[in-house]
Design a protein around this nucleic acid. Structure first.
Lengths: 169, 169
DNA sequence: TATCACTCTTACGTTCACGTAAGGATTGAT
DNA sequence: ATCAATCCTTACGTGAACGTAAGAGTGATA
């Protein structure tokens, strides 16, 4: 655990490059308490190590999972206030377990929406049978053979124009 | 198609109630060109009909699908510029087809993240074997029996403290 | 020592999707 | 006519996650 090379220290530019984020982003993470440099040069330049990079990847992962940065911050604070290591890991565990529930809920929502998309596409595939010159206004009826009396699915029903014509005193 | 009751007209408050959104939201939709009242009273009150409600549901759906309001606006503009009905429907179709691809990509991303969560939870379940009083700082090593030499998964690796201690000249 | 890329802090700008408030006009019921 | 409820426009506020710029200091090299 104690390599003879603490020279892995880098300044913010290098870290930003390695992590693929901007310096501003890292400053911002620090403002939020998500990422603290391991030290500073006497002149005041931030210094980071390899763990900082890991931390950034971790943050990115959590963001992908749908966490907001303030949420991540809260979480880190909870961790910091933990007394023992197992307590800390329990924290992590219930945190992730909860998030897994959310993720799965999101998954089934997305799946439902995907099916809705399929339904809409199915319906629309019938539209090609319309005479190519059909006027848009005639489309509400559209009994030209395509979909006889099938009700337009929600994703299709919302698109009809009501332009600003035919409005007078 | 011509009911004897055009009295389905309503003002913004009623529509907002039925749609479960605020008046401000409907105003906002109008600013963006997403929803236009069918008319106004002589005094200037907005009037909406049943289609307006359908339109709002449609917008909501698209938002659920991950569209931003400006995107929806662009889309509606594309529709408005379509000449024939089939052209319009083709537009819709390719629009939704594209979105389905996105949705599926998002689905598999979520699934990957879910698996990552499972991995992290698996790993963490080994942590209970630590002596309950283990110090946090000792946890990086943590060879007390739990996970012998398994590498901490990304979702776990980012959480170790480097507090602001042990930093002096 | 001069130079120049790098970094510092401070602070205002931006997009999205509205929230909230102010001050005044409209509706419609009594 | 009056009055409460509803609605109008205008406009500034919010929070998330940074972007962008200004003006000045720092670090390593020539």
């Amino acid at each position: 655990m104690s390599d003879g090379a603490p020279s892995t220290l880098m300044r913010i530019g290098a870290l930003a490059d390695k992590a693929g984020r901007t310096q501003r982003t890292l400053h911002f993470y620090e403002e939020l308490g998500l990422l603290t440099p391991v030290g500073r040069t006497k002149g005041g330049f931030r210094l980071y190590d390899q763990d900082s990079l890991v931390r950034i990847h971790w943050i990115t992962r959590l963001q992908d999972l749908g966490f907001s940065l303030p949420e991540i911050r809260e979480f880190l604070e909870a961790l910091r206030s933990a007394q023992s290591a197992p307590e800390m890991m329990q924290s992590l565990q219930s945190f992730y377990a909860q998030k897994r529930l959310d993720t799965q809920a999101q998954l089934s929502r997305l799946q439902a929406l995907d099916e809705e998309l399929v339904t809409a596409l199915d319906y629309l595939s019938g539209c090609h049978t319309c005479a190519p010159a059909t006027e848009k206004s005639a489309c509400s009826g559209c009994e030209t053979g395509g979909h006889a009396d099938i009700v337009a699915p929600p994703l299709v029903a919302g698109v009809h124009d009501h332009p600003s014509s035919s409005m007078d005193s």
